[in-house]
């Protein structure tokens, strides 16, 4: 076991984790943040995507110990301080970008990592940023529309 301290959605957390634990299991089981989902356990589907120090990572492959001293963001922390939805959450709802919803938390976090860094992406850049997040329901069209619309909204 190793004791690690990191920030999750703005809150400091200290806990003991086993050396082989991945970040996803710590978020899901220890911190009861169920938003990030395990779709494959092999970093292939992106459903477990969270942001660590500004970078979107597949938390199922990310060693929990590596999170020590870092800043972790999950879908649960997206809601703005005002209590209203993050523009990405709003547009995902309004543009029909959500069907079964299993990929949604990871998809939204990949999109946030993109917009945080590049607030003005073109369509191709959005597609590249989301290429590691598999969705079987939507065919992606409305997801891409939602991300571009959120980027517009965030510029206002």
């Amino acid at each position: 076991m190793k004791t690690i301290t990191f920030t999750v959605n703005g809150n400091p957390v200290t806990l003991d984790v086993s050396e082989d634990a991945n970040l996803l299991s710590v978020l899901n089981d220890d911190l009861e943040l169920a938003g990030a989902k395990e779709g494959c356990g092999a970093g292939e589907c992106g459903a477990c995507t969270v942001i660590v120090d500004g970078v979107a990572v597949t938390s199922c492959l990310y060693p929990a110990c590596e999170a020590d001293g870092r800043v972790v963001e999950t879908v649960e922390g997206l809601v703005l301080e005002s209590g209203s939805l993050h523009p990405l959450q709003r547009t995902f709802v309004d543009y029909g970008a959500v069907q079964c919803g299993f990929c949604t938390p990871g998809m939204v976090m990949s999109a946030k990592a993109l917009l945080d860094k590049y607030p003005n992406p073109n369509e191709q850049e959005v597609k590249v940023a989301l290429a590691g997040n598999i969705c079987r329901c939507t065919g992606y069209t409305q997801i891409v529309e939602a991300v571009l619309a959120a980027a517009e909204e965030m510029k206002k």
Binding site: T74, V93, G96
Partner: peptide, 13 residues
């Protein structure tokens, strides 16, 4: 919008 989309984007579904 889909009725449960709100809960899904919040990670609460």
């Amino acid at each position: 919008p889909k009725s449960d989309a709100l809960y899904k984007v919040l990670g609460q579904a």
